[in-house]
Amino acid sequence: MSIRKIIERLLFLVVVIWTASTITFFIPRISSRNPIRERFGQLARTGGFSPDDLEIIIESYNQKFGLDKPLWEQYADYIGSIARLDLGVSLYQYPKTVSELIQEAIPWTLGLLVVTTILSFIIGNVLGAVAAWPRAPRWLRSIATPFILFMGVPPVLLAVFLLFFVAFRLKALPLGGAYSIGVVPNQSLKFYLDVLRHQLLPALALIFGTVGGWVLSMRGMGVTIQGEDYVLFAEHKGLSGFTIFRDYYLRNALLPQVTGFALALGNMVTSGIVIEQLFGLPGIGTVLYNAIKANDYLVIYGVVLFITIAIATLMVLVELLYPLIDPRIRE
């Protein structure tokens, strides 16, 4: 890959991040809501200071956050702080910064999403490849059908059903939370097993809710690869069916799926956020959900921007690394 292509993609990444930050800067300013006034109005109602003081406090905070400056200057400051990876402070848990909140939550989200994304990718692609492989036994090929049939069902709905059947009816797994009530987080094996038990249902919902997409696209890919000359050649060489399947058919069909992987990240993260909130897991999604509930705008925008930057960066990374794993498009 040429240096020029790399620079081009990096520039694209900068444009995407700039667009996302511009959107998160201007939308709140178009709206009629004033986060600082709302927050202090709330505090004033619960007692503490008189309404006269309220105006003075709001003014001084506007000054402190630079909200009295002209819009273009605020915008320049904002873009500057994003470039320094400074996402601002929480209005509700002041003086905690958004970055601190994200840092506390990110291990939970990463743990859940990385494992489920990879498992969903593997399961979906193998099932899809088998479904398109004419020599596979019929029952094996038909395993994929229900996944395609229920492709439209979002993981969140699967989570509701899993909660009902597995956690509520069978009482086999907990109904929610990151670990059992009354347990203090520690480094023991027992604690990790407890956490794992709590992660099982959200993970299952995420995996089964996203497998269908992979099955469908892999089946389509597999059908086109079957007709290729090299598959025919491998057959005539007398290679065993499994070798052909693994080395000639799966590998070639799998590579283009990697580019789809980057696109699927967005959906995965979206579903992960909603699932976390449904199960009460203390990840990024719950930070976002609590911020929505408390009208903590700066946290909402900070978290949204953080996720967007993460996804866009991963997408560009996958695109740049792709030639390394697929020799066919290496120049």
Partner: peptide, 9 residues
Amino acid sequence: PIPVFLIQV
């Protein structure tokens, strides 16, 4: 690359 859902949020 920008997750639509987040912008809607």
